[in-house]
Amino acid sequence: MAKYFDMLMEDVRMREGLKACMNCGVCTAICPAAEFYDYDPRQIVETVQSRDDERIEELLRSDTIWYCGQCMSCRPRCPRGNTPGYIIQCLRLLSQRLGFFVESEKGRQQLAIKRTIGENILRTGYCLVPRKILPEMHPEQGPVWRWVFNNDRDVYALFTPTYRQEGAGPVRKIDEQTLEEIHRIFEVSGGKELFDCIEHYSDQKACEMGYGGATREYMMDTFTKNSAEEL
């Protein structure tokens, strides 16, 4: 049986990203995630290529698949034309569809990404907008960002007449009809379904973990907690 492998192969990125891996480790040598984490793209490709359901399921439930930074540095270097970064995308999607992502700390973070970037897209038409880059959530942005944030209308007015207003220009307000089109695109193409799926499994897991549901507290814990640092 290779049920997970078959499910993965339905994704065109698997067909593009996995030819035949010869286990050379070039991808691991260049991978920034492999330098920082206990992470090895070569092993991931090898596991997927084994078609072994048990091993692939273990991967889908693990922190491992969530370490990749999606830089795609592995893609031009693989001597066999594989793209580990694409394989990771497919594993992550399957892990979410099957609800396995909530079984790992890194996987559970998907809720925080859905509730920040995902909801920004639906509400504003952008992945990020200045009002959502809160200095207290982004200490690394430093005092200049705090100054921009606190004076946003004055600062952006230097570069555009349409800050948070309709019309052309940077950081403008996107009109209602456009946002409606984006919503409908998410509905017909599976984007909404994935959002709902992330919420559903997160809610189940949060109950199991004693949060009483995927509350803001649960979401913030997935956003801020790193048990590797607590060791």
Binding site: R92, L93, K114, G125, C127, D175, I185, S189, G191, L194
Partner: peptide, 29 residues
């Protein structure tokens, strides 16, 4: 400089909350 365009949703795509079919459709728009 078109007021009607939006984000391509690429940050959502590479952080795996936006599926391939969805970003394809946003880009097509």
């Amino acid at each position: 400089d078109d007021p009607l365009h939006t984000s391509c949703t690429g940050i959502g795509y590479h952080s795996d909350i936006v599926p391939l079919e969805t970003i394809m459709t946003v880009v097509a728009r």
